[in-house]
Amino acid sequence: MADKILKKLNIKVWRQNNAADKGRFETYTIDNISGGSSFLEMLDILNNKLILEDKDPIAFDHDCREGICGTCSLFINGRAHGPDEDITTCQLHMRKFKEGETITIEPWRAASFPVIKDLVVDRTAFEKILQAGGFISVRTGGVPDANSIPIPYEDVEESMDAASCIGCGACVAACKNSSAMLFVAAKVSHLGKLPQGRVEAKQRARSMVSKMDELGFGGCTNTRACEVECPKNISITHIARLNREYLTARLSE
């Protein structure tokens, strides 16, 4: 079945030359986009058009274009990763838009994710949170045989659900408080649901949460916006686990 062609679209996009620049919206028009094209392919086409018009192309983050690397990060028509469920921006296809529509594209808006240029933001804060304890402290070598620790199927599945986090930052962008609780909770559950990860579980929850606070992410007020926009469908029940883990850690101090 041939995809429909969108004859004309208006693209209203955030332009900001660097972190110091104030930034503003600009609107461009684009013609003849196939509904089977991805959203980022539409931006490629727009960029090549801008180059021919002697304009600076729009900078946006992207890499794998198959929904797994977590690089792409666009706020489209008021939604993190745009108008579709359980996908990243690179998996969004143009068939989701209407002829003649004005599509608004913004970067992630969060104090902890400053804009670098146009739609590209700096997510180094996520790196710092994980460096604060998002790991199991094992060295290379000297570990036991992989089958020496049986792990119940359900526990591994739950760990895997949480481990699916791609670190894109949609949860922060979607949250009115710019909270990173879902991101932190996903890592705490991923490792905490496994016996290997229990050893450092308390310390991990404590240090990651305190790093998150230090970096200026907001608190969680259970609006569930993060869960709705998470491209990997990570559940906020992990936040409940994080809270339990964190409280036990604090109580045992």
């Binding site: 790991f135 199991i136 094992v138 290379t140 070598g141 045989d145 992989a146 049986p150 496994l194």
Partner: peptide
């Protein structure tokens, strides 16, 4: 495989 399991890679079981 041993290394990855120790690191917390949730391989299918």
């Amino acid at each position: 495989i041993d290394q990855c399991v120790a690191q917390g890679v949730p391989f299918g079981r």
